[in-house]
């Protein structure tokens, strides 16, 4: 179980990268096709920069395993990361797909890869008694919140690099 857990934690950022790639491919077009009240229009470049930074951060968290002060702190970060992907499957991908009754960028990898992978990781961390249920719940919650804040910030960075405002 522990061996499997380490393996699946290692592939977590790759799954995240694949998911981000699926999003990048059609996000620009998709945001143009839906009401602005649901999602602000973004260009492919802006979104690519944002998710590129996100992906990089995901790899840093997982690859920096040996630099965390304790094993517990590392798994709090892993739970946060997995929790963010878990919540992200529902908010916004699944809800957007159901509400708009059409494909939402990222829904395929979110449902087929991120959701089972994050559930397996969170469940394993609990079963192996690495973290207790309260710690996992808080990590998932914070992971989701931090994810939203980072998405906002990274989209701002993307906007800065890809949008020219001229007089």
């Amino acid at each position: 179980m522990n061996y499997n857990l380490n393996f699946f934690i290692t592939i977590l950022p790759y799954a995240f990268a694949l998911h981000n790639l699926e999003e990048v491919i059609s996000m620009g077009k998709w945001t143009k096709s839906i009401p602005k009240s649901i999602h602000q229009e973004v260009t492919t470049g802006q979104f690519a920069i944002a998710v590129g930074l996100f992906t990089l951060l995901g790899f840093v968290v997982i690859l920096a395993k040996n630099f965390f002060p304790t094993r517990e702190i590392y798994f709090l970060f892993v739970s946060g990361f997995a929790g963010m992907l878990f919540l992200n499957t529902f908010f916004p991908h699944l809800i957007a797909t159901i509400y708009l009754k059409k494909y939402a960028p990222g829904i395929v990898t979110a449902l087929l890869i991120n959701l089972p992978l994050s559930i397996f990781i969170l469940n394993s961390i609990h079963k192996l008694q690495i973290l207790n249920i309260q710690q996992i719940s808080l990590s998932v919650l914070f992971g989701g919140l931090i994810g939203v804040v980072l998405a906002y910030l990274f989209l701002k960075v993307g906007y800065f690099f890809t949008t020219k405002r001229w007089k």
Partner: peptide, 12 residues
């Protein structure tokens, strides 16, 4: 103006 990767917005 939307250039797919980039956007350009006139503000004046």
């Amino acid at each position: 103006q939307d250039f797919f990767w980039f956007k350009s917005k006139r503000i004046e």
